[in-house]
Design a protein around this nucleic acid. Structure first.
Lengths: 210, 210
DNA sequence: CTCCAATTGGAATGATCGCTACAGCAAGAG
DNA sequence: CTCTTGCTGTAGCGATCATTCCAATTGGAG
């Protein structure tokens, strides 16, 4: 169990093979969904035999979960959050939304696959679906915090509702871009979305507070 | 070809069998997606042998397309559009959105399955996906017309953008309800969505027009 | 009755499914 | 050198896949 810290990882393939398998799997799963992702197809696409896939991953469910996890990390890496001294609160909110949209354009696999899994309701839930829903829930809470920061006088229910509305809108806009293609400017639409949510928060505050 | 108009449809099953097959198929397809819908599973659920399914439908793709078409008709039947003399334009818009949401709660299969198919990008596109995208495009145009009616001075680009935003929001809110369950009040959220879009249209009109 | 068309039942097709068993090979450790 | 570990290659397991074939069955038309 004492693993040697000297740089040994060169004898066959190892880490690189795992990446190749995940690369192939994310492509096929994004095309055909959970059930449509066959081990044989992944094997053919990455050039490694099925036994290698099963050496790296326990079973198909484990593979899909790993795909979700890695594509989420890829998306997180692509996501650059702006500094805090940018301008008005509205400008900061729209800039943040625009950066999320940019990351989604650069790394769409996470949300595409996650939404596919989220819409399915099979008797035994795939682990990848659970992972996605957890990440989604965390995002929802974070958006809720941002909303409460930007509109501190908003009551709890309204902030919760607006956070739900914000994530739902993000999902919907992403899907619309997946359908409509590059012609749909996701970054601009996310900025618009952020503005509408922000203005709604202001109006709701004024209504309940005054 | 001269089909007898006397009520003969009683000898084996015919029309009823077709409905039973579609009932089973919509349930399984809504659970497991396109690839996960096996003829054997549909056969087991509806009690009819596979040969009956293939007598009624050309192949699996034809079956899924029929499922989409019928669930769309079911949704259209559940959709009651309000009369035109209800109140302010805003009230009419929110009432319309609420009715769409109610129909989605009562008949969610169409949008659930349609979005599942829409997210997939398999090399040979299922006919059901094409059907769904066409219906969706028609809806988008209709929403654009409503927006132009409610905000006649809005320029064409802004109306188009808001129509995209409206359908995307509807999709996203629907998905959020599929994930969160009955605790998420889809009708109220659709009403809120309609209000935000409406107010955005007014603001955009004021900005460009004045 | 006979005949025909509409359905169903059941069995079978070859292909593909997820997954496993196991031998082979390359390289670091002793 | 040998031994172990990490990974690949081949073959194959039983199950299930979409689809087809064809022999019943059933009720209306003649």
């Amino acid at each position: 169990m004492t693993r040697p810290q000297t740089t040994r990882r060169k004898r066959a393939n190892g880490v690189e093979s795992r990446q190749r398998i995940l690369d192939a799997a994310v492509e096929i799963a994004g095309e055909r969904g959970y059930e449509g992702t066959s081990i044989a197809a992944v094997s053919a696409k990455c050039g490694l035999p099925a036994s290698s896939i099963y050496w790296h991953f326990k079973d198909k469910d484990d593979l899909i979960a790993a795909v979700i996890e890695r594509s989420f990390e890829t998306w997180l890496t692509a996501l650059v959050l702006p500094g805090e001294e940018t301008g008005t609160p509205l400008e900061r909110a729209t800039a943040m939304a625009a950066n999320v949209a940019k990351a989604l354009v650069d790394a769409p696999d996470f949300l595409r696959l996650g939404l596919m899994l989220a819409l399915e309701r099979r008797p035994v839930e795939p682990r990848g679906r659970t992972v996605f829903l957890q990440v989604r829930e965390i995002s929802r809470r974070r958006i809720g915090e941002v909303i409460r920061t930007l509109a501190p006088d908003l009551d709890e229910d309204a902030a919760h509702t607006l956070a739900d509305y914000a994530v739902a809108g993000a999902d919907g806009l992403f899907i619309h871009r997946e359908i409509a293609g590059d012609a749909f400017d996701l970054v601009a639409m996310f900025a618009l979305h952020a503005r509408l949510v922000y203005e709604a928060a202001l109006r709701m505050t004024a209504r309940s507070g005054g």
